[in-house]
Simulated scan of single mutants.
Amino acid sequence: MSLYDKLLHALTHYPIDELGILPCAPNLSEIPSDAQQYYPLLVVGCKLGFSFDQWMVLLKETQELFNDYRLHHFEVLDMTDTLEQLTRVMVLLKPDNYTAMNIRKQMVVRGQVSIPEELKLIELMFTIAKHTKSSIAWYHRQWLFTFNNKQHMNDMDMEREIQLCQRCITLHPRNYYAWNYRQWLVALMIERDNGILQQEYHSTCQWMEKNISDHTGIRHLEFILDKWMVSLSTSSSIQSSPQGSTLLSDHHHQRQIIQSHVAWLTALLLRYPGHESLWCHQRFCATLWFQYRDNDKQWTDWANQQHRFIQQILDNENEQHQSLDLSNYQQQLGFSSKYGLWLCFMK
Rank of each mutant, 00 (worst) to 15 (best):
L268G: 02
T246W: 14
D96P: 02
S231W: 10
L124H: 10
G195L: 12
R219W: 08
W279Y: 06
S33F: 14
L343R: 00
L77S: 15
Q330H: 13
R293C: 07
Q291Y: 09
Q282G: 06
M1Y: 03
Q312F: 05
Q332G: 00
Q183E: 10
I128T: 08
H140T: 03
Q183Y: 04
S240T: 15
S135P: 10
F74H: 12
T80L: 03
D250F: 07
P173A: 04
Q112G: 07
I218K: 00
G111L: 06
L232G: 05
N295Q: 08
D155G: 08
L343C: 01
V113F: 01
G340E: 05
V186Q: 04
V109G: 01
Y98T: 05
I122W: 08
R104M: 00
D315L: 11
W138S: 02
M229S: 07
L124I: 06
L58F: 09
Y98H: 11
P173K: 00
A10D: 04
L341D: 13
R255A: 01
N316L: 12
W143I: 06
V262W: 06
D68R: 14
E209F: 05
H321F: 10
D315K: 15
D5K: 14
L288E: 04
H261D: 14
G274C: 02
W55V: 00
E159K: 14
S114W: 07
K227H: 14
N97L: 07
T170G: 08
E222C: 07
S327G: 07
A129G: 15
Y177I: 08
L269A: 06
L71H: 15
L83S: 08
Q243Y: 11
T170D: 11
L248Q: 15
V89K: 00
N154E: 13
L41P: 03
P32I: 00
C168D: 00
Q142H: 12
P95G: 03
L8D: 11
C285I: 05
R110P: 06
S249R: 11
Q54G: 09
C24E: 15
N194G: 09
L269H: 08
D5S: 14
D250Y: 07
A178L: 06
T146S: 13
S323Q: 03
H9M: 08
L232A: 10
D81R: 14
G274I: 01
H253R: 14
E161K: 01
V262E: 09
L92Q: 05
F290K: 15
I128N: 04
N316C: 09
Y292F: 14
L22C: 09
G49T: 04
D34H: 13
Y272Q: 06
E123D: 15
N211V: 01
E319V: 15
L92W: 10
T82K: 10
G111H: 06
K60C: 09
T146N: 10
Q332T: 07
Q163H: 05
Q330I: 12
C46W: 13
Q282L: 12
S231P: 07
N175M: 02
T300G: 11
L86E: 00
E30F: 10
